[in-house]
């Protein structure tokens, strides 16, 4: 347990001693809840259309595929046409792209980033490393199967998929969103304990709250 997370006695300005427990005092420990869409189907479809039309990718290149995502924003591939845009903070992002192998360390950060995104949110895995570990199938520090840890909506094959493949993948994702099947966030909320157990089983030094708001 890191020293800054340990329980400690602190003396207030008026001399009263009290205990500060960082995990409880600094972090909100409420679990995620399942969020139902709008009650009227037509409204939910319209929202889904809007969500598909403005896919904001979180700028977090986790693996070797991130280099492939840069060209998307250049004139040659121009993802803006599809309403896709980079957002620097997970708060404003809807799409988390796990581009390639995911080491345990990066998984820990990816989980924290994913949990700070707002429902509905989507995860896209690139390459076989996210499906079954790929060429790192026997490595001691990369995870072998992404959807055990994060609810994945779409995989794009290719080691690593070229920008055209990415655009095609995003088009499929849009179809999923418009069809309303991209409810990874709710799935994460429902089977939250299962996901959390898997994550903690792999990440040994879990010094974060269970759900990072």
């Amino acid at each position: 347990m890191k020293p800054e997370l340990m329980k400690r006695m602190v003396k207030g300005p008026d001399g009263v001693e009290f205990e500060v427990e960082p995990m409880r005092d600094y972090y909100c420990d409420a679990p995620p809840t399942v969020q139902h869409g709008a009650y009227i189907k037509i409204v939910e479809d319209f929202f889904n259309w809007a969500r598909s039309q403005s896919l904001w990718i979180l700028g977090f290149g986790t693996g070797c595929g991130a280099i492939e995502m840069r060209p998307l924003m250049t004139p040659r591939f121009d993802a803006y046409r599809y309403g896709i845009q980079w957002r620097p903070t997970p708060r404003q992002a809807n799409l988390l792209v796990i581009s390639g192998y995911l080491s345990v360390k990066t998984l820990k950060r990816a989980i924290r980033a994913y949990e700070q995104m707002q429902n509905p949110k989507y995860v896209v895995g690139l390459g076989s490393c996210t499906i079954n570990g790929g060429m790192y199938w026997d490595s001691y520090n990369t995870i072998k199967c992404l959807d055990q840890y994060l609810p994945v909506d779409l995989y794009i094959t290719g080691c690593m998929p070229r920008p055209e493949a990415l655009l095609a993948g995003f088009e499929d994702l849009k179809k999923l969103i418009r069809a309303g099947q991209a409810e990874g966030a709710n799935q994460y909320a429902e089977r939250f304990d299962w996901y959390k157990a898997n994550q903690k089983q792999v990440i040994h030094d879990w010094d974060m709250p269970d759900y990072n708001w």
């Binding site: 005092d25 600094y26 972090y27 977090f60 997970p90 950060r109 924290r112």
Partner: peptide
């Protein structure tokens, strides 16, 4: 609470 901020995925 106060540390629930997007601190580039770090604590």
């Amino acid at each position: 609470k106060q540390f629930n901020i997007v601190f580039s995925a770090e604590r």
